[in-house]
Amino acid sequence: MSEQLVTHGLIAFFSHIAAAFVLLAVFVVVYIRITPYREIALIRAGNVAAAASLSGAVLGYCTALASAIANSVSLVDMCFWGVVALVIQLLAFGVARLLIPGIVSDIPDNKIASGVFLGALSLGLGMLNAACMTY
C-alpha cells in the first residue's frame, strides 16, 4: 500500500471521526435541552428510567450516524445526514410524548417502563433511519 493512500485514509478517518464526535456532542446537548427534565442529574442520582431513555437516544443516534458515515460520499454529505439523524431522534421524543403524555413526569419519577419505552423507541427509529440512509 502506498504511503499516499495511507495518508489519505488517515485524513479521511480522523476528519470523519472528529465530525462524528462533534455531531454526537451536539445531539446530546440539544436532546437534554429539549427534554423538560435534567437527564444527567437524574442519572447521577441513580434514576434508571432517565438512563434507559438517554441511552436509547444516544444509541439510536449513533446507529444512524454510523450509517451516514458508511454511506456518505464526502465529509459534508456525512454531516448533512448526521443532522437529519439528529432531527429524527428529536422527533422520537415528540412521538413518545404523544403516545404517553405523562412521560415527562414518569422519567423523573423513575418509572422504568416509560424510560425503557422511550429508549427503545429512540433506538428503533435510529435503526430505521440508518436503513433509509443507504443509497
Rank of each mutant, 00 (worst) to 15 (best):
P108I: 07
V28S: 05
A92H: 04
V76W: 03
I103S: 02
F13W: 07
G102I: 06
H16T: 10
I100E: 08
L90V: 08
R38E: 15
C62F: 09
I88P: 04
A19I: 04
L125F: 04
V29H: 00
F27H: 01
V22C: 06
N129M: 12
F80E: 14
R38L: 10
G115W: 02
S53P: 00
A66F: 15
G60I: 00
S72N: 12
A18I: 06
G82W: 13
L75T: 14
L86C: 15
G46I: 09
I107N: 07
T35F: 07
Y135E: 00
L59E: 06
T63A: 15
L59M: 14
G126K: 03
V104E: 15
V116T: 06
S2N: 10
L98G: 14
G124Q: 00
S122H: 01
V76F: 12
N129C: 15
G60C: 01
S2E: 05
M127W: 01
S74I: 10
L118S: 07
I34P: 02
G9Q: 06
A50V: 09
S55L: 08
D106N: 12
F27I: 01
V58K: 06
Y61M: 15
A51T: 10
I107F: 05
M1V: 05
I112K: 09
L118D: 05
P108T: 10
A85S: 15
V73C: 03
G94M: 03
I34D: 02
L86H: 11
G82V: 14
R38Y: 09
A70G: 15
A68T: 14
S15F: 02
T63F: 08
A12N: 11
D77Y: 10
A19G: 07
T134L: 08
F13N: 11
T7P: 00
R38P: 13
L90I: 11
A113H: 04
V76G: 09
T134C: 03
V83Y: 14
A45R: 13
V26P: 06
L24A: 13
Y37S: 08
D106A: 12
L121Y: 02
G102P: 03
Q89E: 01
G102Q: 14
L128V: 09
L24H: 08
C62D: 00
M78A: 13
M133G: 12
L125E: 12
A25S: 08
Q4F: 04
G9N: 11
T63M: 15
M127H: 04
A52I: 13
L75S: 09
A25W: 02
L99R: 02
G119W: 07
C79H: 08
H16I: 07
P108W: 10
V84M: 13
N71I: 08
S55P: 06
L54C: 09
G60H: 00
S72T: 10
F27E: 00
F27K: 01
C79W: 05
A50D: 10
F80R: 13
V87S: 01
A41S: 14
S74D: 12
V87G: 04
G56W: 00
F21R: 00
I69Y: 14
S55Q: 03
D109Y: 04
M133I: 11
V26W: 05
